[in-house]
């Protein structure tokens, strides 16, 4: 584990959404994890578990129906949640930028790619137009797009190229932290691999810290240093990838990894987790995973488990672990 100060530190972050039928969806509850400089963190979980909401909460880009109810987002020790909107705008893209999923819709259809990249550089007053233009060419070159294609529109690019352009755009202001929200969904397998490779290359080249949101455990094993497993808006387990993959402590992680195809096991033994993820506006009392957990007992259904520190930066939230700790 690195001993440096974390670049980004989420402390007990909770976010709610008010829904149209008047109920409140507790989309994030008590989410805490750290991202150290130069580290790649994988954020995994089923869809609707709060991965994207976590990113949007950090960047403060949630819709008006959302409310951050408590917690801190410390970036280099400064709480982003305490900033004014104007001050927050200076952090966006310059310090933390983001690659959204499905770059077709994330790029403006009536602006050229070059213009969309240059816009960010000019906006943050980094350089004049001539230099910015040169920088756009450099960026496109870095992600493997011929700079001659800068004056084309998004619909003239293939899906993979759009995602490359999106990555070039995200790097425009030399941020120290990059969020990638399912950057490879909706791309075909070959292109997926290329995009991941590109992300890894850039991460090493620029020494970026990356938070990669995905539901693909294979991707996490391949590119991440640590992994944060989320379930129903809470962190289930968090730790170094090797440790979590080799000795998962939370029953949800265990099930998830069993469901993950392993080359050493015959196909067909793929486990499926029974049941569906909880609806965030009708959460079960107690542990959110209890209704689907094969190891659940009475306490799980009434009391939410606290995070247990398992040492070496490995934590998990499960009553079974508390018991084990008490026995020792």
């Amino acid at each position: 584990m690195t001993s440096t100060e974390p670049l980004l530190s989420l402390r007990h972050l909770s976010t709610e959404f008010s829904t149209t039928d008047g109920t409140v969806a507790r989309a994030l509850e008590d989410v805490s994890f750290d991202v150290h400089p130069g580290q790649t963190v994988g954020l995994v979980g089923e869809s609707g578990c709060g991965k994207t909401t976590t990113l949007l909460s950090i960047m403060r880009l949630l819709p008006v129906t959302a409310r951050i109810t408590s917690g801190q987002v410390l970036f280099n020790g400064k709480d982003l949640l305490a900033l004014s909107e104007t001050d927050m705008r200076r952090y966006r893209w310059k310090e933390l930028s983001i690659v959204f999923q499905g770059a077709m819709n994330a790029l403006n259809p009536v602006m050229t790619i070059g213009e969309q990249i240059r816009e960010a550089i000019i906006l943050h007053d980094l350089m004049d137009k001539t230099h910015a233009n040169r920088r756009v060419n450099e960026l496109l070159d870095m992600v493997g797009i011929a700079p001659s294609r800068r004056d084309q529109y998004p619909h003239e690019y293939s899906g993979g190229m759009r995602q490359r352009a999106m990555i070039a755009m995200a790097l425009a202001c030399q941020p120290c932290l990059l969020f990638a929200d399912e950057p490879t969904t909706a791309l075909d397998v070959m292109v997926q691999a290329q995009i991941l490779e590109l992300l890894q290359k850039i991460q090493r080249l620029l020494g970026l810290a990356v938070v990669l949101v995905t539901h693909d455990l294979g991707v996490v094993a391949e590119v991440c240093d640590t992994v944060v497993v989320m379930y129903g808006g809470k962190v289930a387990e968090n730790g170094p990838v090797d440790e979590v993959y080799n000795a998962p402590q939370h029953p949800y992680t265990q099930r998830l990894l069993e469901a993950f195809p392993d080359l050493n096991r015959p196909a067909g033994s793929l486990a499926v987790i029974p049941g569906t993820p909880p609806r965030l506006n009708a959460l079960p009392p107690g542990c959110r995973f209890a209704p689907r957990c094969h190891k659940a007992f009475e306490r799980c259904r009434v009391e939410a488990p606290a995070e247990t520190d398992l040492g070496g930066g490995h934590t998990a939230a499960c009553h079974l672990l508390e018991k084990a700790e008490a026995h020792q």
Binding site: V64, T65, R67, I68, S70, G71, Q72, L81, E85
Partner: peptide
Amino acid sequence: SHHLEGEQSIVTQ
């Protein structure tokens, strides 16, 4: 809702 509709509220510490 849409993306420019006011600001999300934050209950600051």
